[in-house]
């Protein structure tokens, strides 16, 4: 077993390793689409999850499994459209603030301007999106994560 080039592997309490192991699989997939084997994965993961090499879950198998692909697809189907929406809304707000001064200065009530209301709406939308995401992840992502972990032979947390 090769020593990682960057020094002592972290010592982690055992109950954290399943989380670490699965998360590795999840983050592997998100960082790039290269196959794990091309980068001498065993060299890295031996130290990285704190488990000895012979107890490592089979990351390649997890990555290739249909459950994992489904999980990844579900996460992306939520995250990417939502990102487009909130970035678009933010950009619209910024452009209005930069170029539509008279519109933004229009007073709705007292000194409450359109600009102030739109800014407040940004706060509201951030809150709404956060709530939505938490609910989504809890209902759709977490059970699948637990299932994949269980199938990989790790304890469900």
């Amino acid at each position: 077993m090769s020593q990682p080039p960057y020094g002592q592997p972290p010592t982690m309490p055992l109950h954290n390793s399943p989380a670490g192991a699965f998360g590795q699989a999840l983050s592997e997939h998100s960082l790039s689409d290269h196959h794990l084997s091309e980068h001498g994965l065993s060299e890295h993961t031996g130290a990285l999850s704190g488990l000895p090499l012979d107890q490592q879950p089979d990351y390649l198998a997890i990555q290739a499994s249909p459950e994992f692909a489904d999980l990844r697809r579900r996460l992306r189907r939520f995250v990417f459209p939502m990102t487009v929406v909130f970035l678009g809304w933010y950009l619209a707000f910024v452009l209005l603030a930069a170029y539509a001064h008279s519109f933004m200065s229009y007073r709705l009530y007292g000194t409450i301007t359109v600009g102030l209301v739109l800014g407040a709406l940004q706060f509201v939308s951030t809150l709404v999106i956060t709530t939505w995401y938490v609910r989504f992840a809890r209902r759709r992502i977490d059970p699948r994560v637990t299932e994949i972990r269980r199938q990989a032979g790790l304890e469900a947390e």
Partner: peptide
Amino acid sequence: WLVNLLLVGELLRNTG
């Protein structure tokens, strides 16, 4: 904040 929540959070953590 949302950028971090949606694009980074779930994926970044758990790498040990």
